[in-house]
Simulated assay, not measured.
Amino acid sequence: MKVYELTLKVYLLKDIYQGQTLERITEIIDSSLISTENFRNFHNSKSFKHYTFNSFYRLEEDQVYKAGKIYSVKIRTVDEMLVEHFKKNLANAYTEYIKGLTLDCRILVKKHIEKLYSITPSIIKTDQGYWKGHLSIEDYDRRLRENLIKKYNHYFNTKLDEDFELFYRIELNNHKPIGSSYKNVKLLGDKLTLYVAENKIAQKIAYFSLASGVGEMNSRGYGFINYKFL
């Protein structure tokens, strides 16, 4: 397993507000995917996509990303075919808001991971919407864990024995939900710190999660995480 990190340089054609950044980046990635038949089918499928991405860098203090400026976006995946597709197509993609410029690729080194921490909000949805008030912290922990294991099983076509510790501690780092816009709906999520257990499979899943993201809607940019090595 290799986690690929692609750095896409983009030029903004219009201003983009902070709460809309993930939606606008999703649009340019989607425009790349639907440019070929194979990846159009991949894009339209309901299965896990096994990639995620962060928001624009550098940050803007007034939370408005400016037309006429260049920013970078990091995209991660474990899928080599997807990497090759992005290398061929993503730098040439464009939307009403964003034009691709260049794309670089590296492999994230695999070391013992002490903890994972959110860069973009992690989403766990319930039938009632945002999870607080509807799930206990124990249920939230279980949903995060089950989601990661399902993604791992799906990608590797396996079924893990789930009798192992994955995270021994979870911290919620925001005092109130973090809102983002997606298709005219305001999604609420959380910034997390996840302390990874020492066992071998927990470490494998933690490394995998750098590409898959944590929580739901990862191919829309949610649940993108960074890491601290031991």
Rank of each mutant, 00 (worst) to 15 (best):
N153M: 00
Y155V: 11
I25Q: 12
N41I: 13
I70T: 14
S35T: 10
G223N: 13
I137F: 11
F229T: 13
N174A: 13
S47Y: 06
K66M: 13
L12K: 03
I29W: 06
S180N: 09
Y65N: 07
L103I: 15
E138A: 05
F39G: 12
R220P: 04
N38M: 11
R145H: 07
L148V: 12
E162C: 02
I16H: 03
Y182N: 02
N89C: 13
N226G: 03
M1F: 09
K14L: 13
Y94M: 11
E165W: 00
I70D: 04
W131M: 11
Y57W: 09
Y4T: 06
K159R: 14
E27P: 00
F39S: 12
K74H: 14
L194S: 02
L90A: 10
V214A: 09
S45H: 11
I28P: 08
Y207T: 03
V3D: 12
K186P: 03
T158N: 04
F224V: 09
S47D: 15
R106C: 14
Y168P: 13
I98Y: 07
D161G: 00
R143M: 08
V196F: 02
I70G: 02
G100N: 13
L59T: 04
E84H: 02
V83D: 04
Y207A: 08
L210M: 10
I98H: 08
N54A: 07
P121K: 01
L144I: 14
Y97Q: 06
S47C: 05
E162F: 00
G19Q: 11
S209Q: 01
K115M: 14
P177L: 12
A93E: 09
S219N: 08
I178E: 10
R143K: 15
N147M: 04
K191A: 07
L103K: 13
I225H: 00
Y94K: 08
M81A: 08
G179A: 15
D141L: 00
R40K: 15
S122D: 10
Y11G: 00
E80G: 04
H175F: 12
L8S: 10
I149L: 10
V109Q: 11
R142T: 09
K200F: 12
A67W: 00
L59C: 04
M81P: 02
T95D: 09
S31N: 05
F224Q: 01
S209M: 00
L192M: 14
K14G: 09
R169E: 14
I29L: 15
E27T: 12
